[in-house]
């Protein structure tokens, strides 16, 4: 497991006796962006929640940074993973600055250090501190909220980012812009990213590799280029959406 940032090994998940996921075997090396592509209910979000121990597998293991999620303290594990979800993920009663500085605050950084880090991050995602720090999330546009979400996930400089359809609720133009910026940012900061989407274009833009998830199984795994040329019927079906 030493070289994988995240590894699923014989991982299964069932809820109330109903089989949902697996068995899965999947290695994600450090610095890779893996996109999980699939329809609603295919099990992609369940995979993310298995990585940050919001769920524990009912069979097999999920290793994160070399250690099984069963052996991690879930709070410690989650603080070393940035989590970006659709806009609801921002805490509605806290300002942009406090949302972004949340994990550092939980980690008891000094106020000074948090303030500097928040400024740095807002700058990184293209939101000037002076205009945005004091605002509440509902006073932002959808695209701005997503930027704040990304900034917040990066706050404590976690090696891993999990993204659950973060750009789902924004207009196509903003969306393309966010995708481009996110890809550059993830590469520059050398993050390991697991990105869930049902949008083929997004998958091909962002992914170093794309995993097609169907009924809780990986039915295709390969580079965007492989994906474009695969003759797997499931892949071909998704490709028609391009």
């Amino acid at each position: 497991m030493a070289q994988a940032a995240i590894a699923f090994t014989g991982t299964r998940f069932a809820h109330d006796g109903r089989h949902i996921l697996g068995p899965l075997d999947l290695m994600i090396p450090p610095g890779e962006t893996l996109v999980l592509l699939g329809k609603s209910g295919s099990g992609k979000t369940t995979m993310l929640r298995l990585i940050n121990a919001l769920l524990i597998p009912t069979g097999g293991e999920v290793f994160v940074l070399g250690r099984s999620t069963r052996d991690w303290d879930p709070v410690r594990l989650r603080r070393s993973i940035g989590y970006v979800i659709q806009e609801v993920g921002l805490l509605p009663h806290l300002s942009v600055a406090r949302n972004v500085g949340l994990v550092p605050a939980l980690e008891r950084w000094s106020a000074d250090r948090i303030e500097r880090r928040v400024a740095e991050l807002l700058d990184l995602v293209g939101l000037p501190v002076r205009d945005f720090a004091a605002r509440l999330p509902h006073k932002l546009s959808g695209g701005q909220r997503q930027r704040v979400g990304v900034a917040r996930a990066l706050a404590a400089d976690p090696p891993i980012l999990l993204c659950d359809e973060p750009f789902g609720a924004v207009d196509p133009v903003t969306r393309a812009e966010l995708q481009r910026e996110f890809r550059d940012l993830a590469k520059r900061l050398r993050k390991t990213v697991v990105f869930v989407t049902h949008d083929v274009r997004e998958a091909l833009v962002l992914g170093d590799r794309v995993a097609l998830i169907e009924a809780g199984l990986v039915s295709f795994l390969g580079s965007p280029n492989d994906f474009r040329h695969s003759d797997d019927p499931a892949v071909a079906a998704f490709r028609t959406l391009l």
């Binding site: 919001l54 603080r79 989590y83 979800i85 609801v88 805490l91 509605p92 994990v103 939980l106």
Partner: peptide, 15 residues
């Protein structure tokens, strides 16, 4: 409280 907000907070590592 919106379950999604709670989920996000737990996902960030809140006790």
């Amino acid at each position: 409280v919106d379950p999604a907000v709670r989920e996000a907070a737990r996902g960030m590592g809140m006790t």
